[in-house]
Amino acid sequence: MSGEVIRRARGAVAALVLVGLVVAPWVVDDYTTALLARTLALALVGVSVALLTGVAGMPTLGQTAPYAAGAYACAVVGSRVSDVGVVQLVVAAGAGALLAALIVPLVVHARGVIVLMITLAIGELVVVVLGRWRSVTGGTDGLAGVPAVRPFWGLPALASDQGRYLYALVVVATLVGAVLVLLRTRAGLVLRAGRDDETRLRASGHRVAVHLSGAHIAAGAIAGAAGSVLVVAQQYISPADFGFDTSALLLLGVVIGGTASVGGALVGAALVIAVRDWLFGVLPGHAPLVLGALFVATVYLLPTGVNRARSRLSEAAAPQPDPPAAQERATVGEVGR
């Protein structure tokens, strides 16, 4: 069965990648290690984007909002309350979830492109607020000087790039694992059903708004947690980290990776971030030009990835009789596979 072979192959690749990530700090230099740590944080935000865009069928350009909320909450708590990593993580996830919960009533009844517009506007407005709320966020100067993190009570503070990177890896891997488990639950099944045909889901008696709200809040928590990883990895945050460019890049990464696939989102997000960093290193003046061209090229080259007719996104009212499910990369969070 080719399906079985593909599954095993993907599992093997995932294991290899994980091993590679674990040994990386001993193989590459400090600067790259720090860069990898930051990329891990962004990849986790990418997972939250995939959760909403692919699994729940609500495309979003606003996950930077809970990401920022989590990061700033973590920085503030880290500076004034506690330097224990777990505490900061929980606070950050909570902040992200809280912001998502506040935003949920604004988007839960909207569909498709309207959600894109609203989430984009919210994401941008959050950045504006971050820039002007000097008393708490330090304005456009950002927050620096957050004390080193102790992952857990009793453990020493993380003093090296390697230490910080491994902390980031553990956190991200754990959360990704949690998301994968969550997707295999009945809630994950209901979300995917709603993405396929929301009217049908409602006709079965499900409270669609409740599930979508749950998905938003969960995604917010994940993005918030990613924010705390960013603080540890970068040791400095500013509004520039949470701009619209980041949202668009992550969305592109998720789309490249297969929209509904968690593993794909990680790879896609990491790839896109890596390309951007590389471009900015190599062509400091013209990087945005090349990056923009890459965006356009990617959209052309990935018709099935981007143009897959999700019921909530496509303009056709009727669900396609034969969706390109065969071309669709099998989602990681599938029940019964």
């Binding site: 495309p59 350009l61 668009a248 945005p288 030009l289 990056l291 018709p303 981007v306 143009n307 996104l313």
Partner: peptide, 28 residues
């Protein structure tokens, strides 16, 4: 035009790419 029948997601990403590239040209 090539992605006209696609989803709004593709439009958003494509126009964003153009905005990025165009902005860079203006600054240049």
């Amino acid at each position: 035009t090539p992605v006209a029948t696609g989803s709004h997601l593709s439009q958003a990403l494509l126009t964003f790419g153009v905005a990025l590239a165009g902005g860079s040209l203006l600054v240049a």
